[in-house]
Design a protein around this nucleic acid. Structure first.
Length: 271
DNA sequence: CAGTGGGCCTGAGTGC
DNA sequence: TGCACTCAGGCCCACT
């Protein structure tokens, strides 16, 4: 579910409030994608120093160790002084002196993983292969273009892979390629400097705009305060198969790439 | 080596 | 109403 903008919106919604909090206790529900590692009891007494984001992972820095939180396809976090009674899909809770942090994740593709530090193999396994942060300083055009040239994968699948740039999920991949006027099936290595420039800019533009809009709410995304996002209201192609392209009026087309839906305009987006 | 497809889960929606 | 089926925002890993 959540792509980079949703994760960033989530982070911003509770980072300040939880900073400095002391953990009283932690508890697990049903198994998530990966085990926490140690017993949840080791979190008792820890202080939360900061909440950072790397790709679609949230990093809770503790005074000893850190927690890597991934929302998977259906995960969401709430943080508040008190929350309603715990439900069957609430699979992780961190009780602190500033409130309760709760992970709600019906499909359980998400995870909460403890690591001693970022060099810990447990953290490196998850963060090690990640590409550039699209909204950060390190999203360098030359490196990006070199990443494209090195792969013959269809550009949409390369973007989803997260090795070149992180955070572009299935919704935003379609939107970004529409804005850059590039066909999703185009081999990455064949994208010239001109089009690569447009793509590089489109990634920043679409993701930054989605963050401003509070993310997308397709099914059940909500930030930790429970509010919905609004970006999907301005999607140009995602979820609009058969409807007229907002630019040229041609019907938006739908195709499958690697078991995922891709939306595009055949008139606006050249192969 | 790069690239593909299976699988992890549950819930919502559709068609019969 | 019930059942069978498809699909959904991610990502690791076994395989070709």
């Amino acid at each position: 579910m959540p792509e980079l903008p949703e994760v960033e919106v989530t982070r911003r919604s509770f980072a300040d409030a939880i900073r400095g909090a002391t953990v009283h206790s932690a508890s697990l529900g049903k198994p998530l994608r990966w085990p926490l590692g140690p017993e949840p009891g080791v979190l008792a007494g820890r202080r939360v120093l900061a909440v950072r984001r790397r790709g679609k992972y949230l990093l809770l820095d503790l005074d000893e160790g850190l927690l890597l939180i991934h929302l998977g396809m259906s995960g969401s976090l709430r943080f508040a002084p008190t929350l309603p009674e715990r439900g069957v899909h609430d699979h992780f809770e961190l009780q602190t002196d500033r409130g309760l942090l709760r992970l709600h994740d019906p499909r359980r593709f998400g995870a909460v993983v403890w690591a001693a530090d970022e060099a810990d193999p447990r953290a490196r396994k998850l963060l090690g292969g990640l590409g550039a942060e699209p909204l950060g300083e390190d999203f360098d055009f030359d490196a990006f273009h070199a990443g494209l040239r090195a792969s013959r994968m269809p550009i949409k699948q390369l973007l989803l892979g997260g090795k070149v740039v992180v955070g572009v999920g299935n919704i935003y991949a379609s939107e970004v390629l529409f804005l850059a006027r590039i066909r999703p099936t185009a081999p990455a290595s064949g994208i010239g400097p001109q089009r690569a420039r447009r793509l590089h800019a489109a990634i920043r533009e679409v993701l930054a705009r989605a963050v401003e809009r509070g993310g997308s709410t397709l099914r059940d995304f909500a930030s930790t305060d429970g509010n919905a996002g609004h970006f999907q209201l301005e999607a140009n192609v995602y979820g609009r198969a058969g409807l007229p392209c907002k630019v040229c009026g041609a019907p938006v087309r739908l195709l499958r790439q690697g078991q995922r839906s891709t939306y595009f305009c055949a008139a606006c987006q050249r192969p």
